[in-house]
């Protein structure tokens, strides 16, 4: 098990299976089809992201450097949370970008109920993204500590 310390963007404690994107997550391209056509698994629809394309994002601890793409990104994340199709958590190796920050903050401020919560931690460092692999177990603590271990 390895522990990484980040900054809390949206607080929460959760454990989930890791899903890793080494490139920036294009939020609109990744979520649009899932939100549009009622896909509860939130299957990633971004053909330009080989790490995530076709994989379930809902309920996973999504590990990534940053988000990219359209400035609708924040409101798309907000919608994913509102519909209960969000990742279990978002874990950024870099300091968070303005689009993901908007989505994380809007969801945390405006949405109520456990089904819409999404803890977000940023600034976990490059080593975090080098270490974490799809399927690893992730535990996120309230203070921004992220525990990563091999699958059981």
């Amino acid at each position: 098990m390895k522990t990484f310390q980040g900054r809390v963007v949206a607080p929460g404690r959760v454990s989930a299976e890791a899903l890793v994107s080494h490139n920036g997550l294009n939020t609109l391209a990744s979520f649009q089809k899932a939100l549009q056509f009622g896909d509860k698994k939130a299957t990633c629809g971004d053909q330009n992201n080989p790490d995530l394309y076709g994989k379930q994002m809902a309920g996973k601890a999504l590990c990534l450097p940053q988000t990219i793409g359209s400035t609708t990104g924040g409101l798309v994340l907000y919608c994913a949370c509102s519909m209960g199709r969000q990742p279990a958590a978002m874990l950024f190796s870099n300091p968070i970008d303005s689009l993901a920050a908007a989505g994380a903050v809007l969801a945390d401020v405006w949405l109520e109920g456990a089904q819409s919560k999404m803890p977000v931690v940023d600034s976990l460092g490059d080593e975090f993204l080098d270490y974490v692999k799809d399927g690893m177990n992730i535990i996120i603590q309230e203070d921004g500590k992220v525990l990563v271990s091999d699958p059981f």
């Binding site: 400035t71 609708t72 990104g73 924040g74 409101l75 907000y78 303005s98 689009l99 920050a101 908007a102 989505g103 809007l106």
Partner: peptide
């Protein structure tokens, strides 16, 4: 102006 997100 910053590069804001929609809604913000």
């Amino acid at each position: 102006c910053n590069r804001n997100s929609g809604i913000i």
